[in-house]
Amino acid sequence: MEQAKKAELSRIATNIRMGALTAVFSASSGHPGGSMSIADIMAYLYFSEMNVKPEDPKWEDRDRFVMSKGHTSPALYATLAEKGFFDKELLTTFRQADSILQGHPDMKAVPGVDMTTGSLGLGISAACGMALAAKHTGKTFRVYAAVGDGESEEGQVWEAAMFAAHHKLSNLCAVLDLNGLQIDGPITEVMNPTPHDEKFRAFGWNVIVINGHDFDQIESAFEAAKKCTDKPTVIIANTVKGKGVSYMENQVSWHGAAPNKEQYEQGMAELAAQL
């Protein structure tokens, strides 16, 4: 990837992190850890990979994105705002009673949200349905989904994995955000869902393992996914939970907790320094 593009995506990813942090701080609740870990992937998807029109969010030929790990809605909302689907000011209304920005994404309320999610395991199945519909109707749009590593403990994720491979949904690309932590602790201690690569391979998927914070690797992975024409692709992205904010990195306690004012200001300052 060219340096200029990399710098631009890095700047966008930092903006996404700042937007997500602002949303969670404003709400005094939400899920910052997994929003930070997926931010680089979100930046690449919406600013390099996906074909979308912020001025026409329901454009029928658009690529779709499903945030199957719906609790990381702050990352999705911050990305959509960054892309111009709605005003960034809205991020400060996150989780308020009069806001369109629900705790978990509501497709009927928020421009750019392609699927209502929040209950883990359901989003990846819905993404399968979209991909199947595209193939069935001869549409060329692609479907992307972000799945949590803790989420992969849900049986439905593997029902979906079976379905996608069986129906040869090569237009589906899932990203597994392997940040290694879930609410109760490290995924390997709570209920070990690893190894994801061997499991997805055994289910018939094209498997690509990357560093989810390296734009060169992210780009190569999404390019390789498009070249695979007979099976769905999963990009297993090794990430750092809380990435970009020093006190949040690799700390399970920041899965679903909001920063206080002092922590927020420190976090924003750290992120601003990365711009």
Binding site: R64, V66, M107, D114, M115, G121, L122, G123, S125, A126, A127, C128, G129, M130, A131, L132, A133, H136, G155, Q156, E159, A160, M162, F163
Partner: peptide
């Protein structure tokens, strides 16, 4: 369970 969510996605 998967079938119900797949149908949801297809309807969109």
């Amino acid at each position: 369970g998967n079938m119900a969510s797949v149908a949801a996605g297809a309807s969109t």
